[in-house]
Nucleic acid binder design. Sequence first.
RNA 1: CGGGGCGUAGCGCAGCCUGGUAGCGCACCUGCUUUGGGAGCAGGAGGCCCCCGGUUCAAAUCCGGGCGCCCCGACCA
Length: 437
Amino acid sequence: MRLSRYFMPTLKETPAEARIVSHRLMMRAGMIRQASAGIYSWLPLGFRVLKKIEQIVREEQDAAGAQELLMPTIQSADLWRESGRYEEYGEEMLRIKDRHGRDMLYGPTNEELVTDIFRAHVKSYRDLPQLLYHIQWKFRDEVRPRFGVMRGREFLMKDSYSFDFDFAGARRSYNKMFVAYLRTFARMGLKAIPMLAESGPIGGDMSHEFVILAPTGETEVHCHRDLLDFDVLGSEIDYDGDLERVVGRWTDLYAATDKKHDPASCPVPPDQLVEALGIEVGHIFYFGTKYSKSMDAVVAGPNSEPVPVEMGSYGIGVSRLVGAIIEASHDEAGIIWPESVAPFKVGLINLKAGEAACDRASDEAYAKLNDARVEVLYDDREARAGAKFADMDLIGLPWQLIVGPRGLAAGVVELKERASGERQELSIDSALARLTG
RNA sequence: CGGGGCGUAGCGCAGCCUGGUAGCGCACCUGCUUUGGGAGCAGGAGGCCCCCGGUUCAAAUCCGGGCGCCCCGACCA
């Protein structure tokens, strides 16, 4: 993509309303534009990141055996009356009427809808387990939206729903999501710590919040330091095998948010305790037969007896992750994208657009990167070097390939790694080899 | 939902108290000079001053009512 033609309205000054760093940087980088309180348009650069994150979530869900479907944003109130939540949910639910005066709502979540789908089609225990998910926009009419996309009213969320015949099956489903979540966040370059969360009316240990560590996070996190070193990407996961060991490795070590942490009874010796700040980006939850009973989602067991299915739901805040990743990865100059979610891998800077040698070398590098299917944003604008460097640092692409008259005279270009700031002078060919290899 | 603040050019703001030609910086357009870390000079374009009503010869400014947005707290992916 040529920057001269790309819609990327960067700002030198910070809009007044943006208080936290991710919101400020997203506004300045031209990723989003606020439409109303807590509601945002995603401009091309921001949209690319959103899609990258969504795709990682999707791949890991699929790998865990979940199946993607898509449920609507607008739901009928009738289903919610069945579960009893239409009255229960309160002001956070955006309620609307259609032209016939029927009560509708913009879904804040999808348990009712997915349960309705399930009960209509699944009648036998032989068809279990099922693990369904979708990635869809939700709306919760927060009293006070803030922090940009981190706490919007409209937000993109991945939510999965598991259906099992018995508790043991529900636990297997839960474990699948547990591991899939670890992998999902790790692939985005995040340190995600699962924390035992309020388990609701059912009790037990099957509710975890996933908190990623970020210096500007809101939640205080206390955990054993070994949790930070665990690697979940290095080994293949057999989702049909026994996941208890993998899950146990993570849950055996102490991790608690501030609400649950009591320094007096903390089992971790001080020298092994990490105290950090974090942001909640995922939540997995087993809730048993809460909806299957109220909504009559029943399958026939081996003796034809009707059995309400055991369910769980599993959410990831996809749009929140865009902000959360920035909170976890930025510096004074701007965003530092992990390569897996970066809107482009390489920013190609032509330091002197309009000069024949620079244009020729830059155009050629651009063509070669495109041919190699490397995502590249080519700054071919006729702007000053400083402005180009500043914009490129701001939008945080992992690599900058800098082509200028000074280097070309010596037969070299510069390759700068955004994260470390390290620059190397290389021949064009070896720089390209590094980026395409 | 309690408390506070703010709506003036795309963005950041001044002007409002004390009514009288709507301003500054950045961004934008033209030209010249400049050219490896957000250039300089000159010229230019861009405003229902949030909306409605009131007071007044005259309202961005004073008064009343609405709407929007933000911040702090209680609550959430």
